[in-house]
Amino acid sequence: MDIARTELLIAAIARLLDGCRTIAIGNSSPIPGSAALLLRARTGGATRVLMLGSVKHNAFTDGARELFDCAAQGRIDAFFLGGGQIDGEANINLVGVGEHPRWQQRFPGSFGSAYLYYLIPRVILFREEHTPRVLVPKVDFVSAPGISPPEVYRRGGPAALVTGRCVFDFDRDRRRFRLASIHPGETADSIRVHTGFDYDAPADVPVTPPPEPRDLDLLRGRVAGEIAETYPRFARELFGAARISAAE
């Protein structure tokens, strides 16, 4: 694991969550989970985090359906989705590459995306691998569409896409991504080369800023102990066993 890069991603995601009161985190999401816990630590607990798979950082008591019922009622402000493929209109594919039903490459499945993408106002797409294989012109299967026609009930959708190379904003009216910042070591050209879909880019693209020192302190202290409960392997690799036991 590239520690500096992972901490940069966590800080970048935390910035995108600014102002959210209630953030839900799905399964297999250690980096988004760390970002949400960082924001909670920074706001002194004013931001609520509901992290699936956690016992300590998940207040749901009505079973697995409660997240979905909460989302439909508008109680969740932000959520994260990924994709085996993501295209330029922010359609995501969590099912497979090739053709239904005998996929060339089968992914785990759509989870709650075909519902939460429509209902949670700020959905942040996160996929560390930034290659033309993942960021494609058109997905082979739409687990959940980035945009819907006006007659379809939809109060949520994509706000941004964070990858291992950059941050894109999503413009729902233009139905396009726009390059928002590039991580250190990348250039506007290198992003273009590794992206399979077309997108907008300003003449001058800022560099994704590194985490603030106070955020790094929170991350390597309190957050390290909190995230280790759900993602022990991730936390050990990122923070080291000593920091986790000191924080716990």
Partner: peptide, 27 residues
């Protein structure tokens, strides 16, 4: 998708033939 499973089981809990669910259109 996850909530579709929960909703379809909830229909059986209530003994009704179906349950409506948001999302899904266009997937």
């Amino acid at each position: 998708t996850c909530p579709a499973v929960h909703a379809a089981l909830q229909a059986s809990e209530k003994g009704v033939p179906f349950m409506p669910l948001r999302g899904l259109i266009g997937s």
